[in-house]
Nucleic acid binder design. Structure first.
Lengths: 141, 141
DNA sequence: GTCTTTTTGCCATTTTATTGCATTTTTAAC
DNA sequence: GTTAAAAATGCAATAAAATGGCAAAAAGAC
C-alpha cells in the first residue's frame, strides 16, 4: 500500500496525518508479522532518519487501534502485538512459546460459538500455540 | 475437585505440595473464569488466613503452568490469565474489550490450520473479542 | 527430631505501558 | 505564505506486571 493510501486512511479516520502515525502504519503494513511497539521503534530506527519518541509510538499505535486501522492481538507474551487491518482478513496466528515469535497463518474463519445473553462479539481470533522451527531444533523444548 | 486430588496432581508432577501451590491451584479450579495472578492473590486474601507473597503466587502459577496443571491464555489486556487444565477441554474464551473480563464459552475445537514446515502445534485457542453484557449496556462502547 | 533440598518472603530491578505538561507540528482560514 | 487554533509530540515522571537474588523457612526422607 502506498503512502498516499495510508495517509488517506488516517485522514478518513478523522485524524491528522503526522509523520509518526504514517511511519508506524507504514511499518506495520510492511512487516510480514505482527509487531510489538518496541519492534516498531526498532524498525523505524533502522529505516528512517527521524525516530519518534517511544511514547509517541505508543500513542500513534493506540490511535490507529482505536480508529480501526490496526488491531491488537491476543498474546501469550508480555508485550502487545499489532497488525494492520487489511481487506483480506480471517487468518490465524501462530505463537511460539519459547521465543514469542508470532506469525500469520492462512486459516478458515472459525464459527462463532454461542455467547451468553447480552454479549456482543466483534471478532474471532484463532491462536495456535507451539514451537517454531528454530526453537524446536535449537535446544531443549 | 478435592484437596487430596489436587495435592496428588502436584506430587505426580514431581513437586512438593506446598500451601501456596495448593491454594493457587484450588483458587483457579474453583474460579469460574480465568484469573490474573493479582486476582488469585485477592481471592486468597479473602478466603484464607495466611496469604502468600505476590512473588510466591507468580512462582507457584509458573510452576503449575510449566508442569501442565494450569494454562496461560492469550490475552489482549496487560495481565496474564490462567485457567486449570481439566479433563473436558476444547472451549473458547470471550474477552471484553472494555473491562477485560474473560470467560469460558462452549466451543467446537477449531481445525488446525496448516503450519509452516518445522513448526509444531501444541494447542489451539479460540478467542472471541467483543463487549460483555455489562459494558454494552453500561456506557459508551 | 534431624538433615537435605526445595520453596518462600522480602527487596531490588526489569519490562511494558501510561500520564502530565510545555513545545512543536498540522491544518484550515486568511 | 502567514497566522491562529487544535492536535500531536517529546521528555520526565510514574504506574503496572513480572522477574531475579539471597537468606530464612518449610517439605519430605530418614
Amino acid at each position: 500500500m502506498t503512502d498516499p493510501d495510508l495517509s488517506r486512511r488516517i485522514r478518513d479516520a478523522g485524524g491528522r496525518v503526522t509523520t509518526a502515525r504514517l511511519a508506524v502504519l507504514r511499518c506495520l503494513a510492511d512487516a510480514d508479522e505482527p509487531l510489538t511497539p518496541d519492534e516498531v521503534l526498532e524498525h523505524l530506527g533502522r529505516n528512517s532518519d527521524h525516530v519518534p519518541d517511544r511514547v509517541t509510538i505508543y500513542r500513534a499505535i493506540d490511535w490507529l487501534a482505536v480508529h480501526g486501522l490496526v488491531r491488537r492481538l491476543a498474546t501469550v507474551g508480555r508485550a502487545a502485538r499489532y497488525e494492520p487491518v487489511e481487506d483480506k482478513e480471517a487468518h490465524a496466528h501462530f505463537q511460539c512459546r519459547r521465543c514469542a515469535q508470532t506469525r500469520c497463518l492462512p486459516a478458515p474463519t472459525p464459527p462463532l460459538p454461542p455467547l451468553p445473553p447480552g454479549y456482543a462479539a466483534e471478532r474471532v481470533e484463532l491462536v495456535i500455540h507451539g514451537l517454531c522451527a528454530a526453537c524446536r531444533t535449537g535446544d531443549t523444548p
